[in-house]
Each structure stands twice: as structure tokens, then as C-alpha cells.
Design a protein around this nucleic acid. Sequence first.
DNA 1: ACAGATTTTGAGCGACTGCTCAAATTCGCT
DNA 2: AGCGAATTTGAGCAGTCGCTCAAAATCTGT
Lengths: 214, 214
Amino acid sequence: MSPQAGAQTREKLLDGAIRTLVEQGIAKTSARSVAAAAGVNQALVFYHFGSVDELLSEACRYATEQRVARYRERLAGISSLGELLAFGREMHEEEREAGHVAVLAQLLAGAQTQPRLAAATAAGLSLWVAEVEKVLVRVLSATPLGEFADPVGLARAVAASFVGIELYEGVDRDGATRALDALDQLAAVAAALDDLGPVAQRAVRHRLRRAARG
Amino acid sequence: MSPQAGAQTREKLLDGAIRTLVEQGIAKTSARSVAAAAGVNQALVFYHFGSVDELLSEACRYATEQRVARYRERLAGISSLGELLAFGREMHEEEREAGHVAVLAQLLAGAQTQPRLAAATAAGLSLWVAEVEKVLVRVLSATPLGEFADPVGLARAVAASFVGIELYEGVDRDGATRALDALDQLAAVAAALDDLGPVAQRAVRHRLRRAARG
DNA sequence: ACAGATTTTGAGCGACTGCTCAAATTCGCT
DNA sequence: AGCGAATTTGAGCAGTCGCTCAAAATCTGT
């Protein structure tokens, strides 16, 4: 069972799909453009994947798994909302400098009108959501909020919001930077609340519990 | 100076563009599809607007101005973060039930790889940002956070995040609902903090000021 | 009623799309 | 070496795209 000859071509196409997606955007990602980036014949897209959508779906999973795996270690070291935000900014900055646009943002945009892409995009996004969820559980459980916030929902909100800000950056970079700076500020405020003295802490928790019951 | 005959056609095309955008998505919005929705010849797109991008840019401004004006009154009545979130959800729900997809989300997605759309999208988005900013200034100034948060940046973060969640809803509706529910919960928590007793309030403000200085 | 400008039309150009297909090539195996 | 299967190729089909253009229709002022 040596690796089939075609397996290399499959990988070339997956890589080519991701490169085309991040360098040219979803609108210019076609069988021919991907094949050109991969250096193979365009008909191979259909031989190996059946359709362009299927190729993009597999490429989405492929790329997201790679990236999540690469950053998992760093994610495990995050211990505050501010650090989580900083991580997101750095990760995104790395790609932006290389002239890249976020893969998931592109796919999410394309998936709006291509149902077949939607499932794969949701799956790829959920890989990130799962990681963010782990971080949130760890971070929030140490604060008064941990008792009342829903990490599962918040992880989805955080991931979706981040994608939104990435897209916003595409049309107004300065605005996006200011938005992220404001969130940084807010994270610092949240961190400060965690450092309240024991009396104030108790007052806060008490008030939150009353609100939760009401 | 009676209204030119062509002015009606222009409006038909603008309406057709918006309808096509929200019903079919940016990927299927073309000169021919828009003209079909407007019930006019496709060549008129180029006679009246010069290019498809130009038509979409004008349609973006047209649609956003209309919608912002329609909701301005309601926006003025918002007095808490929870109400702001509820407003966003309701506004979006109205459109979703009509089978619509958010116009700005579609344009934002398309603008990533079409520089000419980017400017118009940014302009349209900034109309919403301005409204959100007004609300945030009013809402935040009544809380301990008002002293440290940046409404200008936060308004951008809120608008972009909302678009991100709208797009996320396109691929995972249940996930998006759970995300919004979690944010609702968080808004309730923030509201509860505002109702702290005077002693705890002072402790919180004191702590935040120390954090701001450090 | 007529001339001149404005608006509308349908055909068409070149480029692109997803996808198919028969023929050519390469591969693993005996 | 030779056979069958897996893989690769380039041409091609039918469709869509943005956009142009000459001709037709419609409006405007006299």
C-alpha cells in the first residue's frame, strides 16, 4: 500500500485552493485558477474531487485543522480575555502581512449563497469555536462572571465577531484597528474587576445572583 | 425641470439591485439579473451607472440611508446594552423572515476582492456605526465604564461583530442563536453591575482608575 | 409637424465559468 | 515485456459575465 500517485496531486490541489482563496479571494477562486496555482491540469479538480465546491470544502477542513493544530499550544497558555484578544490580533496580523485574507472569512462570505460550502465552513469554524470555548471555560471560571456566562454561546459569538472584524478590516483598516483597541481597553477593564477586594467581590456576586433569579 | 424620464429607470435599477442582493446574494448579482428584477433592459445599467460596481455602490448608499432613517427613531429610545442587542436581533429577524440576507453583509463579503465596492461598503457601514456610536455614548456615560471605554471604537466593534454574526447565521443558525443568547445574558450581567450599591460602585470605580493609570 | 436630444433596445464580442470526454500517458504487477 | 488500471491531458460544450454599439423608440421644445 504505497501512497497512490494521485495522492500528491490531491495535496497540490488542496494547497493551491487555499493559496488562491487567501491571495485572490473567493470570487476569483475557480477550477482553472486553483489548478494553475497547483501547477496541474484543471480537469484533475473534477477527477479527484468531483466539483469545485467539494474541493473547497475539503480545503477548508484541511486548512483549519492545520492552523488549529499549529496554534493549539499557544491557546492553552491563554489565561485572560485580554490575552485571547491579543492572540487573535497577532494570528491575523501574521497573515495580513503576507498579503493574505482570512480563509474562513472568505469561505463564510461565499457560503452565504452556496449551500454546499456552508456545511464545510460551519465545520471549519466549529474547530475554532471548540478551541475558544476551552479558553473561555478556563478564563471565565476564575471570575464572578463564570457563574452566569455561557461559554458555549460566547465562544460562537467571539469567533463570529472576529470574522466580522476581519471582513470590516478589508474595507476600513483604521476603523478595524480602533475597534480592536477599544476591545483591548474593555478587556483591561474586565481584568481590573477581577482584582476587586473581597468585599466588593462579594457585593458583585450577590448582585449578579439576584439578577439571575429575577 | 420636470423629472427626467430616466430618473424612474434609475430608481427601478437601484431597487432591483437591492432586491437581487438580498434575495440571491452578491455572487448572483449581475447586470442581467438586476435588470430582470427591475424589469428593464440590461444595457441600461451601463447607460445610467457606467458599471455594475457603480450601481451596487449607489444602491448600498441608497439602501443604508433608507434603513437608518427608518430605524433612527427607535435607536433614539435605546437606553441599555441589552436593548441595543435586542434591537439588532429584531431588525435582523424582520428581514430573515422575508427570506432576505443582510445587504451590508453581502456587500462586505463582495468588497473583500472588489476595491470599488469597498469604499461604498465602508461608507454604508459608517452610517450604522454613527448611529451605534450615539447610542453607546448615551448608554455608557451612565455606567462606571463610561469613563474608560471608547465609544467610537466600540461602535465599530459592535457593528462589525453584528455583521459577523449575521454571516455566521448563514451557515449555522442554531449556533448564531446561542451566541446571541449568550450576549443577552452578558448584557444582563452588565446591567446588574450598574445597580450595585454606592459602596461597591465606588470600589469598582476606584479599581478601574488604578488600572487605567497602570 | 418637425428637428434634436434623451432614452431604450437587442444583438453581439471576448473572456470567463463548471464540467465532460476520448485519447494519451504513466503506473503497479506479473 | 506486456497488461490492466489509475492518472493526466487538451479540446470542447453550454452557460454566464461585463460591456459596447448601432439602430430604434421616445421625449422636448419650437
